[in-house]
């Protein structure tokens, strides 16, 4: 009972606060230029101009081309980091070799450094290694940058799995690899779903590395396209920009919606599956 009161007293107003910026920017995406220039933020558009705004954004920023690239980078970053991080975490938490914590610290140290400082060494290195402006180069980088956070999550999640399960499996004669594949991975679906959603979103929203490691439209990610709609020195077409931002966030919202049940009802799913 008490909890329900709390929900209505605090969470509902908080939700409204959270929705205000979303609502106002969404509204702009539906306005035409005249309405945008003359109306206050809360006024409804006199003409619903969403389709034209989307067309403007789609064509001007060539979002279609970039869309596919970012999809690829996002999937690579998420899938790659899930594989690398779960393998490493399994060993660190369950096999506990000597120096496991040190190795974890090394992997983890990939996140402590301010990202911007990777730009110049990577740009130079990529040119030397002919990875510059290639899809492969972009995927390798995104896998790497996604791995430390993924390792942190998997490490934390694996450490909550009761030790007895593993001991029992070992007594049954299962190899470590089989335990990892057939026991830990299925159990860690919630963690994997979280990593997939967060890391896909991170890669999808990355502008900085997409900009410095590529130069052609064939390899550039979607945020570079979206940046085309922003005004650097002249006022941007705000309705167009907001329409662009709306379509650009569809994949990340879709992914969240699709995977939500795995990490929010993770436990229920496990019991149902067994």
């Amino acid at each position: 009972m008490k909890r329900r009161i709390l929900v209505y007293l605090v969470v509902v107003p908080l939700c409204l606060v959270w929705l205000l910026p979303v609502w106002t920017s969404l509204l702009v995406a539906f306005k035409n230029l005249d309405d945008y220039a003359s109306q206050s933020f809360w006024q409804l558009p006199s003409q619903w101009n969403f389709v034209d705004n989307v067309k403007y954004a789609w064509n001007k920023a060539k979002l279609g081309t970039y869309f596919i690239n970012s999809l690829l980078y996002g999937v690579a970053g998420a899938a790659g980091s899930i594989i690398l991080a779960s393998l490493a975490s399994f060993s660190i938490v369950r096999l506990r070799p000597k120096g496991a914590n040190l190795l974890f610290a090394l992997i983890f140290s990939g996140t402590v450094f301010p990202f911007q400082m990777y730009l110049v060494p990577l740009y130079k290195g990529y040119q030397e290694l002919n990875l510059y402006d290639t899809k492969l180069g972009m995927m390798l980088f995104y896998i790497s940058i996604c791995t430390p956070f993924a390792t942190l999550i998997f490490r934390a999640f694996f450490s909550t799995i009761p030790n007895e399960l593993m001991e029992a499996a070992r007594l049954d004669g299962c190899s470590d690899l089989r335990i990892y594949l057939q026991m830990f991975m299925p159990l860690s679906l919630p963690a994997a779903a979280v990593v997939a959603v967060f890391q896909f979103t991170w890669v999808w929203n990355d502008l900085l590395f997409g900009l410095i490691l590529t130069c052609s439209a064939d390899t550039r990610p979607i945020m570079v396209g979206l940046a085309q709609l922003q005004g650097a020195r002249a006022a941007a077409n705000m309705p167009g920009l907001m329409a662009g931002a709306v379509i650009a966030s569809i994949p990340t919202i879709a992914l969240f919606t699709a995977l939500r049940r795995y990490f929010i009802q993770g436990l229920a799913l496990q019991t149902a599956g067994e």
Partner: peptide
Amino acid sequence: LNGLWRRMLCRALLLALVALMSTT
């Protein structure tokens, strides 16, 4: 669930391969 995992992995690898073969 294992099947789901395997399917997801296969799809990711396939996508990666297709991408790698295209060059500028």
